[in-house]
Amino acid sequence: RAHSNPFSDHQLEYPSCPDDMDWSRLYPHFYDKENKKMTKEVTIADIGCGFGGLLIDLSPEFPDDLILGMEIRVQVTNYVEDRIIALRNNHAKKMAYQNINVLRGNAMKFIPNFFLKGQLSKMFFCFPDPHFKQRKHKARIITNTLLSEYAYVLKEGGVVYTITDVEDLHNWMVKHLEEHPLFERLSESWENEDKCVTIMRNATEEGKKVERKKGDKFIACFKRLPTPSIA
């Protein structure tokens, strides 16, 4: 199934607040049993991670970061879980792929339940559901109101990455990010030098599909600006 309604009450599991989240289950390798504490926290989130291609390619590039994929579709989440278990088993000697995992969740509703203020350094929005109809636009993953919540979980200087093959959606995302006072677009030369952009362009299953169909890929990256001080 390609779509899921973000407004409906899925039977989701989510922590009642970020401090209640048990990350050790997802990243056992980064759990210090003696002190009962995580040695790292999640700093990179792939919102709507799909089949997990981006997570897998980001993993070796950011060995010191924990990377979380969030996906609302049950079967897709199960698939990514199995895929990561297999990767971890196949690379058990090198302890690779311990820093990535996936959870089923509705990021649009519950992102503040998972992450503390300023916890994330990167957020990826790769090939999100375009929700073409006008009246469905609030269901888009980038809206001016949701951007305020993404800005809350992103640290200052953190980056929002977007990629889509739908030009109309690209323009929509750029417009809303540009209008938002806490985000500033990063230049094309920045994009060309950033390794995540390269990975995002090539890694995801959606991206590969667009490649095969020789479609366009639209990319836009935005920096989280410092929160202005308020008198």
């Binding site: 503040p112 339940n113 800005a151 809350y152």
Partner: peptide, 22 residues
């Protein structure tokens, strides 16, 4: 109706200050 109480600055509503979780 999803358990959230959200606190944002006003009129700078784009700056979320915190949530009350419980």
């Amino acid at each position: 109706r999803d358990e959230h109480i959200k606190i944002s600055h006003y009129p700078q509503c784009f700056i979320v200050d915190k949530w009350l979780f419980g």
